[in-house]
């Protein structure tokens, strides 16, 4: 009886998967800023977020200031509530590098690398003019149509889910193989920048970033 039930379940899952794939058509493209709206823009002011970072057993809180300085350079600066600079990353078109860090953090290259890649992911660093594929979900019952952009980044796949009307990023899922490695959620409303951003690692790396926009 139990085996029969399992067989029916498995059959149903296969049918559902096949039906699902019928309603999604994947298209190749070169990702542009008109597909996913950048979070940082040269003519806009800095975005400031009250931020907490939990990295393994360490808990940090402070203010993350993100600003596009010109068309090619942006800075991501993290300072403590009481004003001490903790780290400063410079983002260029396709890369992100450390400008300075508090001495205690500078001596932790793995932590720096992790922060660098996660902040790059959050602020959509290096995604434009890269090959991607998109899937339009026409079966959605919502008025908003979601589009998934997939990009190959080494062994990882980043899936960007945007609102098709506003072109604002809603969610990012980074996968390695079939496993979800990182998930980023954005609370997008009117005005500049997301109202809140939450990044969570899955698996062995215990890193969570929670950001709340300051007015």
């Amino acid at each position: 009886m139990r085996d029969q039930y399992l067989k029916i379940m498995l059959f149903s899952i296969i049918i559902l998967a096949l039906c699902g794939s019928c309603s999604h058509r994947s298209h190749s493209m070169l990702l542009q800023k008109t597909d996913i709206r950048p979070i940082l823009n040269p003519n806009e002011g800095a975005l400031k977020y009250q931020t907490t970072i939990d990295l393994f057993k360490n808990h940090f809180s402070g203010i993350l200031v993100a600003k596009q300085i010109d068309s090619t350079h942006a800075h991501l600066l993290f300072i403590s509530e009481i004003g001490m600079k903790i780290f400063d990353f410079e983002m260029t078109k396709d890369s992100i590098h450390l400008v300075s860090a508090f001495p205690g953090l500078e001596s932790r290259p793995k932590a720096i690398e992790l922060l660098k890649s996660d902040l790059g992911l959050i602020f959509l660093n290096g995604i434009y003019n890269k090959p991607a594929s998109w899937i339009r979900d026409s079966t959605s019952s919502f008025a908003t149509i979601w589009i998934d952009f997939r990009q190959r980044d080494g062994k990882r796949t980043n899936i960007y889910i945007t609102n098709s009307e506003t072109k604002r990023i809603q969610r990012i899922v980074q996968k390695k193989g079939i496993r979800k490695k990182i998930q980023v959620g954005y609370d997008q409303k009117e005005g500049l920048g997301p109202q809140s951003i939450v990044l969570r690692h899955k698996g062995l790396i215990h890193l969570t970033m929670m950001m709340r926009k300051l007015d």
């Binding site: 808990h59 940090f60 403590s80 509530e81 009481i82 001490m84 903790i86 205690g104």
Partner: peptide
């Protein structure tokens, strides 16, 4: 320890 140093420097600023 890192948090301690950050706090040390920060508290100075806070004053």
């Amino acid at each position: 320890m890192l948090r301690s140093y950050l706090l040390l420097a920060g508290l100075l600023i806070a004053s």
